[in-house]
Every structure is written in structure tokens, then in C-alpha cells.
Design a protein around this nucleic acid. Structure first.
Lengths: 204, 204
DNA sequence: CGTATCCTCAAACGATCGTTTGAACTACTC
DNA sequence: GAGTAGTTCAAACGATCGTTTGAGGATACG
């Protein structure tokens, strides 16, 4: 009954790649539908408008990303033996996994673009739908860093966010060497990010 | 003989603001020239094309920014008593100053956009014209962090770059309170950034 | 004054944009 | 198998894009 699921998914996948490559304004619906192998009018038929398509590109990945983040956080939050590194791992690892499986490798780049563009509508959408995730992580950071004032904590979380978005959007110079498996490389990347972020958060 | 200096400057200033607000593709020459109060054709007359205008917007600010950065670095590089914080200050303070004087407050946002967009031509332009600045800072970081492998050092400098670009492009949540002077606020911001970055770079 | 140079201007160019339309095709129900 | 709802299609819509054109204004020099 729903052969359009295929069309919708193909549009979303092609849109994610093209948005990452050329930006939201730079990627045209004609390029997009050609890459997806669907008719030009299919975007407006299935999504209503290009703006709604952008939102759905975010929604598809962020729903699973934040579900994994919250699941990972739930397992460790509030426990006395939880470390800062554990919380950072719960935040970072799901994003790294997303970059390497499920074909969502380009999504972090799309996310980095969304941060750079100060589009109010898009920011409102992200805040309304996923603000609670950052709030839960912030609460856990606050618990583990009791010496920090609220102001300092917000500052540092913002800096960590910037560093991670930048790194995971593919700017990292470090390439995987051929003699290292992808799993190993991902693990090393995670450790780099976590070590840096934890040390920055713990700054005197 | 050159009353066009005014026209050129007005185009550059309006372009910087509009690029920061709407992006390079999102800002049209018609919006841009209207905001600058000049004729539409003036952009192509004075700059040749929109792409060349983009380059000149970068060039105008980056020339002074990197000159200040290199001057600050020169005063401290190689000296035995120089600290990691000193080098970070030489890198960060000129950028913060640029954000608060000379009307270049929007430029860091433009720069953040350039990082998010993976435009090859623009990246090549930035690398060719200003790559030597990052190389000099990297060399000084390497001297002060002898325990880090080259790979780890590159990783961490990349993370620091991401954090600073993110923060200085105006995402920082922290607003200046009315009872704090702008000079004081800038000083506090610099200390936040430097403390975080130094601690991250020194991570075990 | 005449002319040469630099600059500005309104108007138009072809291309491309997001969106809409109405007909054709598909699959399922009665 | 006629009817219906869901989907795809080629074609066109008006708007806006970056760029070009050619006439006209401004200024300096002989």
C-alpha cells in the first residue's frame, strides 16, 4: 500500500548528502530529485515544501541519535561511580556511530551547517524537539562538576559542543590508516574527543 | 581620483553583514547593493563577480586579524618563559578585538560559515593566503607540548579551532551583564576560552 | 572648450529557483 | 471491471538569481 516509502526515503537520503555538500540553499530540488531518481514534484507532494524537507532530514537522524544518547545517559546518570568521561562517552559515541553506520555519515556535516546558519526557524525547531536532551546532559555535567558556577558550566559545554561538531563534521585531519580497522579507528577518535573535552571541562 | 573607495568599502561592509546573516548563497547582490546604497552593477564593476567579492570580504578582515596574531606571537615565541596560555592569548585576543571594534563584529560569523561550507575554492584561498599563520602557531604549540605526538597535536589544535570558532561566532550563551563594561566582559571571555583550551591541550 | 577616464545608472539578458497544475499510471475495493 | 485513492509524470508558472549592456554623469587635463 505504500510504495511511496521508498520514494520518501530516497529523497531524504539524497537530500542529506546534497545538503551536506552544497548547503540548504545551494542544493536545488532539481539536483536533489535527479540524484534520488524521482520526479521533481515528488518533494512538494511528499513533504509540502523544501523547508519541511529540511526539517524531516533532521528529524530522521536526530530521533535515533538522541534516543541513543538518552539511553546511554540513563544507564549512568546519578550513579556515584559515574565519571565525566562516561557522560561524554554517552554524548559522543552515538554521534560517531551515526557517522559510520546506517548511511548517516554525512549528517554531522549537515548539523554543522545548521549551527553555522543562524536560521531562526531551524533553530527553533531543533530547540523545541531536542532541547530536553541537552538539558539532561547539562544536569549530569553540573552534578559531576560541582565546583563550576552555572555561568562557567554553560560556557564550557558550549565550547565542547563547538569542538565536537567541528571535529565530527569531517574537519579532523586525522585519517584512518589502512592497517587500522574502522572499529579501532572510531574507538581512537572517541578517546581523543573524550580526553580533550573532559580535560577542558575540568579546567581550574 | 578615487571616489569609488567609498563605494567599494560600503559594498564590503554590507556584504560582510549580509553574508553573516544569510550566508554566501542566501545573500543576493540585490539585497546587498540596496543595503549598501549603491547600484546593482557596482559589485561586478568593482569586484568582477560575486565570488571575488566573497574573497575580498575575507581578505579585508583576515589581513588585519592575522597581522595582529603574528605580531602577538612574535613577541613571545621561542622564549623559555612563554606559557601555553600566552600562545593561546596571541591567537584568541586579536579575534575577540576584531569582534568588538572596527565594525568587524560579524566577521567571525562569516568565518564560521566558511568552515561549515566545504567550498573547495574558498578553502584553497584561505589555505594559500593564511596557512602560514596556523603553521607558526602549530610550531609554537609543539614546542610547548613536547609530550604530544604529531597526530595528537593536530587533533587537539583542530578541536581548539572548532571550539573557538563556535564560541566567537556568537553562539556563546553568555551575555554581557549591564553592570560589566565591555572591556571587562571581553577580558572575561578571553580568560574563559584560554583556560578551557589550555586545559584541553594539556590533557593527559 | 574638448576629450579622456572613471564611475554610476536603469534596463535587460538568459538561467535557475521553488512551486503548481492536470493528466496519466498504479493498486486496491466493491 | 468500473470506481477510487494514492502516486508519478512532463510541463509550465512567476519570481529571483548573477551578469552584461550602453547611455549618461562626474572629474581632471590639455
Amino acid at each position: 500500500m505504500n510504495s511511496s516509502a521508498s520514494t520518501k526515503e530516497r529523497i531524504l537520503t539524497a537530500a542529506e548528502a546534497l545538503f551536506a555538500q552544497r548547503g540548504f540553499e545551494g542544493a536545488s530540488l532539481r539536483q536533489l530529485t535527479a540524484a534520488a531518481g524521482v520526479n521533481l514534484a515528488a518533494v512538494n507532494y511528499h513533504f509540502g515544501s523544501k523547508d519541511h524537507l529540511v526539517e524531516q532530514v533532521f528529524k530522521r537522524r536526530l530521533d535515533q541519535l538522541n534516543a541513543r544518547r538518552l539511553a546511554a545517559l540513563k544507564q549512568i546518570s546519578g550513579q556515584p561511580e559515574t565519571t565525566l568521561e562516561d557522560v561524554l562517552a554517552a554524548f559522543i559515541r552515538p554521534a560517531l556511530d551515526l557517522s559510520h553506520d546506517g548511511g548517516g555519515g554525512l549528517f554531522m556535516r549537515v548539523l554543522a551547517r545548521a549551527f553555522a546558519e543562524h536560521d531562526d526557524d531551524l533553530r527553533k525547531f531543533l530547540s523545541e524537539n531536542y532541547g530536553h536532551v541537552m538539558r539532561q546532559f547539562t544536569a549530569e555535567f553540573a552534578r559531576l562538576l560541582p565546583g563550576l558556577s552555572k555561568e562557567e558550566l554553560y560556557w564550557r559545554i558550549d565550547l565542547v559542543t563547538g569542538a565536537l561538531t567541528h571535529a565530527m563534521s569531517g574537519f579532523g585531519i586525522i585519517q584512518r590508516k589502512s592497517d587500522v580497522s574502522e572499529t579501532t579507528h572510531r574507538e581512537q577518535t572517541a578517546e581523543h574527543l573524550i580526553r580533550f573535552a573532559a580535560s577542558g571541562l575540568r579546567a581550574p
